[in-house]
Amino acid sequence: MDHFDTAVVLSRVLTSGVIMSIERNDRELPALERLLRKVGGRPHVTLVNSVTAGLHSALAGRRLGHGDDVVVPALDDAHRRFLAWLGVRAREDGTPAFAYLSAGPADVGRLGPLLATTAGAPAVVLNLTGLGFGPAAAVLFDDEDAWRRAERLKIFGTFDLRTMWTQTEADDGVGGVQFNYRLSPLVAACVRMALTTQGARA
């Protein structure tokens, strides 16, 4: 990645105020969400700070959790251990509840075609850690309700930041554990720049 671009983008994020106040001036997370919606062809995207957060979000979006049997795609051992920690019994003998893709630097120019291979899956967990900016992932959804549930899993998710989660607005059946899975805007800025610099701009 071009270091001049890095300087410009990081300086812009650093001086935007979002590093000192999550309530203001956060253009980076929505911008990366927009890019991934466009590239992935799905209307809803949740950004998270690790691939395990992405797996958790995909399951939460589909109302799957502790005690459930879930058909999953091929995952590595650490990710399967994580699902076991969530209390999910994972198996691979059917149609997966979500698709899983991992993107590294070699993939960014062909992210669109890569994501197109997941057509039909209700959700896609896209591991962005391989781009080199630290743990990062996105979950792409077709269904708005699934996206809403995934955002509710996040402390400081979309709804917390907009409303600080008033009880009257949380009537969509969510009342469980929450994690702070919010992706750093600095990391999001770098991911977005890497994707656009390398030609994933749709």
Binding site: L10, T52, D77, R81, G134, P135, C190
Partner: peptide, 11 residues
């Protein structure tokens, strides 16, 4: 448990 709580180097 395979939990990824890692901090980004940028952060």
């Amino acid at each position: 448990h395979g939990i990824d709580y890692g901090m980004s180097w940028i952060v």
